[in-house]
Design a protein around this nucleic acid. Structure first.
Lengths: 190, 190
DNA sequence: CATGCGAGAGAACGAACGTTCTCAGTGCAG
DNA sequence: CTGCACTGAGAACGTTCGTTCTCTCGCATG
């Protein structure tokens, strides 16, 4: 098998397993079986499980943000673009293998250790926050940075509520809150 | 040593370690050392690490909600009582050993397995949501259940933002958002 | 004082798992 | 045809860790 193809299958299989069960609960044998590759080959691509996990997070960071941007780009109106973020969440929550935010999960799993994974989590949330700040600014918010932080909190909170099953209407409720904040944050005369 | 005292020391030591590092990263030997109890005694109280972890979560559920209620009860005005929730968060975030929400962390650590721990997480969030609904109702919200869900999302999101270090002003920003939502949700004529 | 009884300290056991090694099979170069 | 480099499958190794076992010591009791 081609190297590129093998690497792709490896990352796809590892990503699915890591997300579904957490890093620690997935053994290298599980990944080997799912990817259909011998362990030797896996260790040629990534010399340790940790580095495979990092690649998983980096890849998910990229893919997830790209999917969000695609969903937002289906809207033109700046205000609708902000609200589309929560539509995206609602669609995500409804997928059968939804298990919360991979980065929040990994952060909880790795505890306080200042590993690369914790850093990747922070970077992911920072990228998301910057993206939201752009949307907030386009929507005419008086303080786009603060609004972005608030929207980010609503998003993460909605993910937690949905993942734990405490609120089946999490995305809709978060969207309503975002709408209220957007209205209140509208620049005078904008 | 007294049984009650030993049990108390065990739960205190295990709680601190579990919260700081996560369940899986803490070995029974670490707990033994921190509690100053022989393993035999520990296994007399809790026949497995899992059950000790459950006791840790149940205890933390109780203590954390009680601490929140104490903080809220320092205020009389219904609106201020809602906002006191976020003051409580700000004080919590500033404590040196803050490591996010223990329940969210455990949820991420245990993945999708429908264990007792996942159930305890949901129960904790449900209890918190009910408590918030009471506060929201007292504050005259038109739809206290939805407002409580939104406040809960702001709280969880703020915890995530603070724990990951993506926003050092998480509590203040969440409080501002809650204030806006509270104003918008005021019942006409209340 | 003799005697059992429970506690404490730590060794031991067994399983899980990340990582490496072995060995047989295969296609290619000379 | 012969040797060789590589691949794949799985065994093996070493470590970690949850759990249990062993042995010794102190102590209360008759």
């Amino acid at each position: 098998m081609n190297d590129d193809e093998a690497r792709e299958r490896l990352l796809a299989a590892a990503g699915q397993l890591f997300y579904a069960r957490g890093i620690h609960a997935v053994g290298m044998d599980d990944i080997r079986e799912a990817a259909g590759l011998p362990l030797k080959r896996i260790y040629q691509f990534f010399p340790s499980k940790d580095q495979l996990a990092e690649a998983y997070l980096a890849r998910r960071d990229e893919n997830w943000l790209a999917a969000l941007a695609r969903r937002v780009d289906r809207c033109r109106d700046p205000r609708q673009r902000v609200l589309a973020v929560f539509a995206f969440l609602g669609e995500w929550f409804a997928t059968p293998d939804f298990r919360g935010c991979a980065f929040i999960n990994v952060f909880g799993e790795l505890g306080s250790s200042p590993t690369a994974a914790a850093q990747i989590t922070r970077r992911h949330k920072q990228r998301l926050r910057r993206y939201l700040a752009g949307l907030a600014n386009d929507a005419g918010a008086a303080r786009p940075t603060m609004l972005a932080a608030q929207l980010l909190m609503l998003m993460d909170g909605a993910v937690v509520s949905a993942a734990t099953g405490v609120n089946v209407r999490a995305a809709a409720d978060a969207r309503a809150a975002a709408s209220t904040l957007l209205t209140a944050a509208a620049r005078a005369g904008a």
